[in-house]
Design a protein around this nucleic acid. Structure first.
Lengths: 336, 336
DNA sequence: TATTTTAAAGTTATCGATAACATTTTTATC
DNA sequence: GATAAAAATGTTATCGATAACTTTAAAATA
């Protein structure tokens, strides 16, 4: 491993001079600079970021912790976050919690030992509170995306889940649906709660009855037990004419389930959901969705995080960005 | 920031004793161990990985460098790689080169300064050679996935691109197609070259003519210029009855283009492609594909990388794993 | 009880860089 | 040409941990 001392020796200067050349600090004669640079090239020198970080007390690494790397909402969000991070000269450490609070906790411990400069987190849910408090205690700046966690004050980028859900349900009602079920994520997740609220409000405003058997909660993740979902469907008599899915992954699952039972979407049951399918919407622009601005979630969140890091302790008040969702009407809703 | 010295002072022991407690090394009395642990808890101590890495000369961080984080082939692969890395106690730094050699180069420089223990790379193409040589020169173990790079010998996980492409073309021929075009990735990418070879061989074996105007090369990435692709289509008279897309992203693009021109898939033109669509195949199981074992690419590649790191210099010969592709017949091919 | 052995600590140097201060060299000014 | 000012370079301490060696205390043996 080539170090600045090797460079220094071969160029007959001190290590400090080499450091100055590398960082372009202090005053150095052109002759010395050229000589040092030549030796650095010859020896293929690469600075050691560990050593640097140890002295400087900052790593210039940020982290993005998402809950499902297979979900296009999060991959698109990742692109936004990465673009913003790179633009400001940071590197990005990705993590994937799989909607699992334990995995998330382990990941945050790792980030703490790695001394990352900041974290952009889509928390697994309300039980993420202790980890976030741990970050706070260790003074690691963080910004939440997509989900609020009661008990923690911080910068946050949210989608307008309630309004988006309302729009989806109103759309169904406008197409004559009266018997609308909702397949949602866990109520320990703020966005799921708000989507349920939007659903309930829309029903109330249209004087439709609320029926608890038509509300089903499971994981937003992609690995649900379809047989349980199946039992839920069976419990409903009559079947709903439309189902609102709390996110895109759930929409795919319910559609798969319905098809496996010989039911057609939308001929037998209409399905709408939160979040679009990224480039895969092209596959067959089929499902009517409340599309969120995934890229912006990542980009704006990362930007806030970096600003917060640069401000340091003289920080302003917490900021909250709420991005609207856009209803994209496709072919998964039938008029009844 | 709490350090082992703070712990040491408060527990009235030396820093070395604290270090021993943390790492469970050396001999320590139960009483001392308990006391140190208590103080560590009280002060919320978290070890500094930078300092540790500096001494130990290893970071326990691995990196996965992919070319398109939005592509389900790579996100699925990422899951496999992550699972294998975590299983062996490593952390994973993700990177996204966007099929861009410059971006890849920058990323590899970063990895070098971060002193990661190893890298799993899906190289942007043959021009990635210099970066890989740089890794080699700095003795950073790496494993290639999905794409070979002439000039570099290393462990590698590949898909059987030639055979997969042949199977796709044979499938088309079996359905009566005689006029088959190919929309492929850049010929600077080994897998694209092999897919073209498979295509050509299948045509030859079936005594079909080869027509250069029916072969079009662009980027595997998701941001192609459709107008140029459009001009390619226009140059072909008559239009092909079927198109083989070199990967899933290209399939989506050509389908979008065809639809925008009022052409239907498969009624007017059949389309098949390499790589499946992950969970989005559920959206509408529509396109006939040669599906690769994406998860295994990541899992096996990461496993090889970790073995290579642990073996150290007494390494065995380079290993090459070739995973077959599976033809999944759906509804994007019409018999003619 | 004296001596050896083992257990349980402590000291010092080191990893590779940079900050802060110190010194030497060069250039400018009178 | 002497002196001050500025430019260029060097020295030392430090970041937070661990390895290698050393010392001290306790237990085992003669």
């Amino acid at each position: 491993m080539v170090t600045i001392y090797d460079i220094a020796a071969k160029a007959s200067v001190s290590a400090m001079t080499v450091s100055r050349v590398i960082n372009n600090t202090g005053k150095i004669s052109d002759k010395t600079r050229a000589k040092v640079k030549r030796v650095m090239d010859e020896l293929n020198y690469v600075p050691n970021q560990m050593a640097r970080s140890l002295v400087l007390q900052q790593t210039h690494i940020l982290s993005l912790l998402i809950t499902d790397i297979m979900n296009p909402f999060y991959t698109t969000l990742s692109r936004g976050a990465e673009d913003a991070a790179i633009k400001h000269g940071y590197r990005l450490l990705f993590g994937n919690s799989d909607e699992n609070v334990q995995k998330e906790a382990a990941y945050i411990n790792t980030l703490l030992t790695a001394r990352v400069d900041g974290v952009l987190v889509a928390p697994a849910g309300d039980p993420s509170l202790p980890h976030l408090e741990k970050l706070r205690k260790h003074e690691v700046p963080f910004v939440l995306i997509d989900r609020e966690v009661p008990g923690i004050e911080c910068d946050i980028v949210l989608g307008d889940s309630k309004e988006g859900a309302r729009a989806l349900v109103e759309h169904l009602i406008a197409h004559g649906h009266r018997n609308i079920a909702i397949l949602n994520g866990s109520s320990s997740i703020s966005s799921a709660r708000l989507r349920l609220q939007g659903y309930l409000e829309a029903l109330k405003l249209n004087d439709l009855p609320i029926d608890d058997t038509r509300i089903y909660e499971t994981s937003f993740g992609p690995m649900n037990d379809l047989s349980e979902m199946d039992r839920w469907l069976s419990r409903m008599a009559p079947l709903p004419t439309a189902i609102v899915a709390g996110n895109n992954a759930l929409a795919l699952e319910i559609i798969r389930l319905l098809r496996s039972k010989g039911l057609s979407v939308p001929d037998d049951i209409s399905v709408v959901c939160f979040d679009d399918f990224g480039p895969y919407a092209e596959l067959d622009p089929f499902i009517t969705v409340a599309a969120q601005q995934a890229y912006q979630f990542g980009y704006l969140g990362m930007q806030m995080l970096i600003e917060r890091i640069k401000e340091g302790s003289d920080a302003g008040p917490w900021r909250k960005i709420v991005l609207p969702a856009e209803l994209i009407v496709r072919r998964s809703v039938k008029s009844v």
